[in-house]
């Protein structure tokens, strides 16, 4: 594993199915790690583009999360708001290797002071 590029953040079995966990970044923006029904894992900055709601607490369905504050639907794949809403939240690359979650180091640390 190329540790310069990827950060190991823990085993995938710590993610509830159809749920999410949070990953604070000191000096940066919190990341939300999502788990879909099919076992896919995605990561977004944990802020809805609308009013910065914590997407990690939304309902995950298919590859979408519905924001808990005002029910905007955000694509887990590219971070775009779906339907009539407009906005986009940054996506963090994720990969699963041997049951562990790795996220892109550079993207995770972006925006850190």
């Amino acid at each position: 594993m190329d540790s310069a590029k990827w950060l190991d953040i823990g085993p995938v079995d710590q993610l509830p199915s159809l749920g999410a966990r949070t990953l604070p970044v000191q000096g940066g923006k919190e990341i939300a790690i999502f788990h879909t029904a099919n076992g896919e894992v995605y990561a977004l900055i944990n802020e809805c583009p609308h009013k910065q709601g914590p997407l990690s607490e939304g309902i995950v369905h298919d590859t979408t999360v519905t924001c808990p504050l005002h029910s905007w639907r955000i694509s887990l794949i590219d971070g775009h708001a779906l339907g009539d809403d407009e906005g986009c939240v940054p996506v963090i690359p994720v990969k699963i290797d041997n049951g562990r979650i790795f996220i892109g180091r550079a993207e995770a640390l972006q925006g850190q002071g």
Binding site: I9, T22, L23, P24, V25, G27, G28, I101
Partner: peptide, 8 residues
């Protein structure tokens, strides 16, 4: 709980 934490 957070799944983990990133510090610089």
């Amino acid at each position: 709980q957070h799944i983990a934490e990133i510090r610089p």
